[in-house]
């Protein structure tokens, strides 16, 4: 049992001393997952709102596809991106395999179905009601879009946080396309996974603590806003 205690002590030392390697890993994690979440959100929140509000043929099938794809495993996303970016792949000429760029692409693709599905759901349920209310009170389509965004902004923010949370805590996709290269593509989750298999616990524990703090922080944010209901 002693090694666990020792691991904790060493972990705290790494954190308190601002160990450069540890902090580089944390910064890269935050950078990759934040960028991916922002990219996915900027494009797919408007699309989700649009699809959710719009009536069209085949909407049921679209709903099913969106909901199903929300649960795609991260290793599958990693694998697909890896195949596309590999030297012989269709995007091999970009030469970005095993770089942070590749990791951002993989995580963006990973969170797209999530942010799309959550936003779509929100717009389809509450959004359509708000649209009707705006209409009955004499609003035009611009008034109703403004009202929908105003009414749903907190929920949308919670969805973005949920997506970020998924991104920062996944390991499969970034492992496959990033390769966990020291000083280059190493992020929190891939490092924990590797350190664990090497039996090097202090750094794994230190990063585990950070990941927990980030996750708890996001979830308490989500919780406090969902209590607004």
């Amino acid at each position: 049992m002693d090694y666990i205690f020792q691991g904790f002590i060493e972990a705290l030392k790494l954190l308190i001393s601002f160990d450069p390697e540890v902090f580089k890993i944390i910064i890269l994690s935050l950078f990759v997952s934040t960028t991916a979440t922002i990219l996915a959100s900027l494009i797919f929140i408007p699309i989700g709102i649009y699809l959710g509000l719009k009536k069209f043929r085949g909407k049921r099938i679209i709903s099913r596809i969106i909901y199903t794809s929300m649960s795609v495993p991260s290793v599958i996303v990693g694998l697909v991106v890896a195949i596309l970016l590999s030297r012989r792949g269709p995007l091999g000429h970009l030469d970005i395999m095993y770089t942070p760029k590749a990791m951002i692409i993989a995580q963006t693709l990973l969170v797209i179905p999530l942010i799309l599905g959550l936003t779509y759901n929100l717009a389809k349920n509450r959004g359509t009601i708000i649209e009707k209310v705006a209409f009955t009170l004499g609003g035009n389509s611009i008034d109703s879009i403004i009202l929908i965004i105003r009414e749903l902004k907190v929920d949308i923010l919670v969805n973005v946080a949920t997506s970020f949370s998924r991104a920062i805590s996944e390991v499969g996709a970034v492992m496959i396309v990033g390769g966990n290269i020291k000083g280059h593509t190493r992020v929190i989750t891939t490092t924990i996974s590797m350190m664990n298999s090497m039996g090097d616990y202090p750094m794994a524990i230190a990063l585990g603590i950070i990941l927990l703090i980030i996750s708890f922080g996001i979830n308490s944010f989500i919780y406090s806003y969902s209590q607004e209901d």
Binding site: I129, K132, V133, F135, T136, L137, G138, N140, E228
Partner: peptide
């Protein structure tokens, strides 16, 4: 039409109030 729409209103049985 638009003019008629802005001159009528409908209160749902379970109204939606803004947050």
């Amino acid at each position: 039409n638009k003019e008629i729409a802005t001159n009528m209103t409908y209160v749902f049985q379970k109204p939606y109030l803004f947050r």
